[in-house]
Write a protein that binds this DNA or RNA. Structure first.
Length: 424
RNA sequence: GGAGAGAUGGCAGAGUGGUCGAAUGCGGCGGUCUUGAAAACCGUUGUACCGCGAGGUACCGGGGGUUCGAAUCCCUCUCUCUCCGCCA
């Protein structure tokens, strides 16, 4: 979330920049300005009265101690009115503060200057591409047919056990999942990321910290009996490691990676988007998360983009990198690069990674700060994360792009993990 | 699931109604000493908000209450730990 101070100091700029995200912030910003002013005014007044009250109480204490009971009782009588007005003003303050918070969480993050204008995915900017699209010819099969042919994934079984979007991986299919996870984690470690295994279920505070709550609870599975949420991405538990934390500046950047299953309700999705592995309710992903110095976070973002690029290149997948336009970006992001790989039989691009700089948006919610050497006051840090990578669509592309008459060719980097050069 | 205990500053741990934002120890930082280091000694060491400033306010798990005054008493919620049971 944007800090109140920031909004107060740059109200017009906030409105102007949020327009890039197709968000009309005028009304909310105006209300924030008004309420913030009222809040401070109220605090000022109530603090003065509290100071008076504290002083009186101390005096009464002294009087009782020195046995001047009559004088003490006289003084006591004077506190009643003060007490009443403090109570009223406190309530007023709390009311305003709550209202402010409600407004504050409605404002999306400010898009970076690099974000192109635009409403939909059509307006995203392709900034890089690589690899060669394979020529498959007439008999090319989509991955769901290949998965069935080689008995890699059983979608119907998942329906029976749970429901649509929860496939069962089997044999080489299951082995491929494990191979990819291990490959991604090994790569991350070699690039300086510390591996963590987080919980897959989080509480409300964590959901708030990374921005899923309060508004996007519809995307998460909710275990109501315990009021816990299944994670939609490892970003949530991993980033929340740093909730209410002040780190030393010299520890930055902090680089974490985690494998996790991810759970998404995906209410309202339909059609070709959900066919096969294209969109699932449960999927596997290796995530990378960084906590960075504000001066360095865009360098860090570039580093993450080149790291993810190295992964898709090693997997020999044709890819492109797009910079999301304002209208296609998430609520919390300041700048996002999506990675898409070419799915040769479906003949479409599939998003396999999303790498974002959240600047201080999450850190404000998390109260994640750092302290510069020798400085007293902590500053808000920047957070970033990215998929490295999400498995299902990688699997879809690998199956389709590498299909041959003899079977599915395994990319070289995965051969040691798979123990075979071909799946058949 | 049953029974009990507890939640205090970076950590450990006192404080059971009044100058308590909080003893003490450890850790951290600065200094003295030393060729350097250790030890010893001295000092310092939470966060947020309001205020131009002086300064003020809040915070001892969360919320509510009693009281002139609450870390301390009462209610309530949450969480943690221990033992028993069950169990990967």
């Amino acid at each position: 979330m944007l800090s109140l101070k920031f909004i107060q100091e740059n109200p017009d700029w906030v409105v102007e920049r949020l327009a890039v995200k197709e968000f009309d912030a005028r009304e909310i910003v105006d209300q924030v300005l008004e309420l913030y002013r009222k809040r401070n005014e109220t605090q000022n007044k109530v603090d003065l009265r509290k100071a008076e009250m504290n002083k009186l109480s101390k005096e009464i204490g002294m009087l009782f101690k020195s046995g001047k009971t009559d004088e003490a009782n006289t003084a006591k009588a004077r506190t009643a009115e003060l007490k009443e007005s403090i109570k009223e003003m406190d309530q007023e303050f709390d009311r305003i503060d709550e209202e402010l918070m409600e407004l504050q969480v409605q404002l999306p993050n400010i898009p970076s200057e690099l974000v192109p204008a635009g409403k939909t995915a059509e307006d995203n900017l392709v900034v890089d591409e690589g690899g060669v699209k394979p020529e498959l010819g007439e008999n090319a099969k989509p991955h769901w047919e290949l998965a069935e042919q080689y008995d890699l994934i059983n979608f119907e079984l998942g329906v029976k056990i749970t429901g649509a979007g929860f496939p069962v991986y089997k044999g080489w299919g299951a082995r491929l999942q494990r191979a990819l996870i291990n490959f991604f984690l090994d790569q991350a470690r070699e690039n300086g990321f510390t591996e963590v295994q987080p919980p897959y279920v989080v509480n409300e505070a964590s959901g708030f910290g990374t921005g899923q709550l309060p508004d996007k609870e519809g995307q998460m599975y909710h275990a109501t009996a315990d009021n816990l949420y299944l994670i939609p991405t490892a970003e949530v538990p991993v980033t929340n490691i740093f909730r209410d934390v002040i780190v030393d500046a010299k520890e930055l950047p902090i680089k974490y990676t985690a494998y996790s299953a991810c759970f998404r309700r995906e209410a309202g999705s339909y059609g070709k988007d959900v066919r096969g592995l294209n969109r699932l309710h449960q999927f596997d992903k290796v995530e990378i998360v960084q906590v960075a110095h504000p001066d360095k976070s865009y360098e860090v973002l570039d580093g993450m983009v080149s790291y993810v690029k190295s992964l898709v290149e090693k997997l020999e997948l044709p890819f492109r990198i797009v910079r999301l336009c304002g209208g296609d970006m998430s609520f919390t992001s300041a700048l996002t690069y999506d990675f898409e790989v070419w799915s040769a039989a479906q003949e479409r691009w599939l998003e396999v990674s999303s790498v974002s700089n959240f600047e201080s948006f999450q850190a404000n919610r998390l109260k994640l700060r750092f302290r510069e050497e020798g400085q007293k006051k902590p500053q808000v840090a920047h957070t970033l994360n990215g998929s490295a990578l999400a498995l299902p669509r990688i699997v879809a592309a690998l199956l389709e792009n590498n299909q041959t008459a003899e079977g599915i060719r395994v990319p070289k980097v995965l051969v040691p993990y798979m123990g075979t050069e071909i799946i058949n």
